[in-house]
Design a protein around this nucleic acid. Sequence first.
DNA 1: TTATATACGGAGAGCTCCTCCGTTTAACAA
DNA 2: TTGTTAAACGGAGGAGCTCTCCGTATATAA
Lengths: 192, 192
Amino acid sequence: MKEDQTRRRRPRSDGRKNRERLLETARTAFGSGEIDIPLDEIARRAGVGIGTLYRHFANRDALIEAVYRAELNRLAASATHLADTYAPVEALRAWLKLFVDYIATKQVIAPALNSLISGTDAIYADSRAVLTTAIGGLVARAVESGDIRPDIEPIDLLCALTGVSIYATGPGWEERAKRLVDILIAGSRPGG
Amino acid sequence: MKEDQTRRRRPRSDGRKNRERLLETARTAFGSGEIDIPLDEIARRAGVGIGTLYRHFANRDALIEAVYRAELNRLAASATHLADTYAPVEALRAWLKLFVDYIATKQVIAPALNSLISGTDAIYADSRAVLTTAIGGLVARAVESGDIRPDIEPIDLLCALTGVSIYATGPGWEERAKRLVDILIAGSRPGG
DNA sequence: TTATATACGGAGAGCTCCTCCGTTTAACAA
DNA sequence: TTGTTAAACGGAGGAGCTCTCCGTATATAA
């Protein structure tokens, strides 16, 4: 009988290093607009084989998710900060506009949101939870304070904003998306 | 010098027939949920070669667009009817809910909306115009009657609804989308 | 019947995602 | 240091899809 699984070998340094290089390469590529870059190409630029890429990331979405996970977490964290700083409804408004900014600068995230929001794959469960918790908390506070009705499923706000961000790609879409934020909040007011 | 182009040969009967069979086959496939069906398979079922399919439809989106063009036109036509029947804002509300139904029954349309709304391809110009005219007219009437502010780009309403329809695929998404319609309208009221 | 514009079919080019597996190497124990 | 082995590597290639090309066939018009 061998050692219990509690004592495991430490992860190999080349493994961690290659993973980092892949993430960094992907981040750079996505950030400069190369949204449809083939995974082979990312592997090539990172100086590793395609097999290595797939060992670290199950598929394209998983890579995208990993690239943006940190920022997703930061976005979620800022929800807490806003909640502590502003009145409930204003915190919600501000955060939704941050969300628009987030989609704006990371256009790639939109395709990934599909898997993120509706995907059943366990890989995305964490990030989904992070998002739903953030938006859910802000909405709950605004409902408690009586500023908005509990009519809307919080996550639907993100879906609607994402829709505009994807489909309305003309000039000024970002402004339009932010106006939509105001409309959504106005429409959720108790009197509305 | 040959005949002027004004007098052209009448389109070949086998051509029209095959086009119809392709449309019908695609309609059936899409309608029964086979959204990702390969075009080869559609051609096979229609009893024609893949080359024939591509001669009639430039690409996948063009086929989808053709399949749903008639219904898209009907949807647009119903905007006129609603405008004649209901008060401006109620006509708008009703039509937006029809739009949700439309996406609900034709899930395929969502991917095509991408090309439809933001695509530069001339193929989609017609259908885009049909949609923008329909929604634009309804919104304009509601603005004139003083029921809503001219804050929102009409097409953004469709984008938002489409977003929910695509990303919120859980149970009851249709209801949620319709609630969003009410929220969007409430949020666009002058007082809001 | 003949001429020809039009349509047909399907092989295959090109691309991408992802898998598989023989080879290499870092971590650990002796 | 050296041997053992779990972990990681690379990249050929399978599989699937979109779309093109071009030799063949045929409906239409003269």
